[in-house]
Structure formats: C-alpha cells, structure tokens
Computed example of a mutant assay.
Amino acid sequence: MATKSEPLTGSDLLNKVKDLNNLSAEAKAKKCGYFTVTKDGAERVSMMKFMNALLDAEGVELDSKSSNGNGRGGRSASYRISVQANGNLLIGSTYTERMDLKPGDEFEVSLGRKHIHLKQISEDDE
C-alpha cells in the first residue's frame, strides 16, 4: 500500500508524469499522489483530479473566464504553430494583436537549424 502525501501540481507534476511515461494513466495518477484510502484500506485513484491538475499545469483553461467583460473567452496563446497542409505557417491574430501588427507589415525571414526568426522591417529600414 502506498503512503498518502500531498498531490503534485504544476511543473513538478509535469516532470513526474514525463518520468513515468511507461506506466498507465492510473498508475501515474497514483504515483503523483492522486488517490485516497478508503475506510477499509483500499486505494481509490482520483483520475478526474489528476487530469484537471495536468490541464492546470499545462495552462489549459476549460472554463471561459473573460477578463475583458464582453463574454468572449477564446483560446490562450500557446506560442506554437504547425505547418498547414499547403506548406504555409499561419500566425494567429492573438500574436499579431499583441505585437500591434497591421495588414501589410513586412518581415525579413532568417532560417536557423531548428528555428525561424522574423525581423520586422520598419519604414526606416527601407
């Protein structure tokens, strides 16, 4: 029987789950402290609490908590993009709004070994 301790959260939880990648989800939850011991000594794994803690640790908001008051939650920026089927990279409006970019703004693209740098070309540079 495992000893009950405070369940892991945040980056500690994410690191532990990565270390336990060869175990089942239930075993991971148990090793991370997401279980209770019943009166008769049986262990009950709390999968829902474990999954919610993982989502919180990853920064995923399931409940829309709008801070701007207009009732629109939307997704939060993940700072990751994927290559589309047509080979294009689409940078979403969240990023362009944060950078105050306007239609027609131009960038210089420089390719690294494992990265792409975008350097905004200002009117002064031309």
Score class of each variant (00 low, 15 high):
G74T: 02
T36E: 11
G87Q: 13
L89C: 11
T36Y: 01
S46R: 09
G73K: 04
S24N: 04
K102C: 03
N70Q: 12
S76V: 03
K39S: 09
S64H: 08
N88G: 02
N88D: 10
N68F: 11
G92W: 03
V45S: 03
K49L: 07
R80M: 14
E97L: 05
Y95P: 00
L20M: 10
M47K: 01
G71E: 09
P103E: 11
A25C: 02
G41P: 04
R80V: 10
K65H: 11
P103C: 02
G71N: 05
G41M: 07
N86M: 06
L54Q: 15
M51F: 07
M51E: 14
S46H: 08
A25F: 00
K102A: 03
L54F: 04
N52S: 13
G92H: 12
G73S: 13
E61I: 05
N52T: 06
I91Y: 06
N70H: 08
I81C: 09
S64D: 14
G59S: 12
M47T: 00
F50D: 01
G59V: 07
N68A: 15
N21Q: 04
I91L: 15
L101F: 10
A57W: 01
L101Y: 07
R72I: 13
S24M: 07
R44G: 02
E97F: 02
L54R: 14
R80C: 13
K31F: 03
K30D: 04
A77E: 14
N68Y: 05
D40C: 03
K49S: 11
L23C: 04
L62M: 14
S67W: 07
A77N: 13
G59A: 11
T38N: 07
V45R: 00
I91Q: 08
K65M: 11
M99T: 01
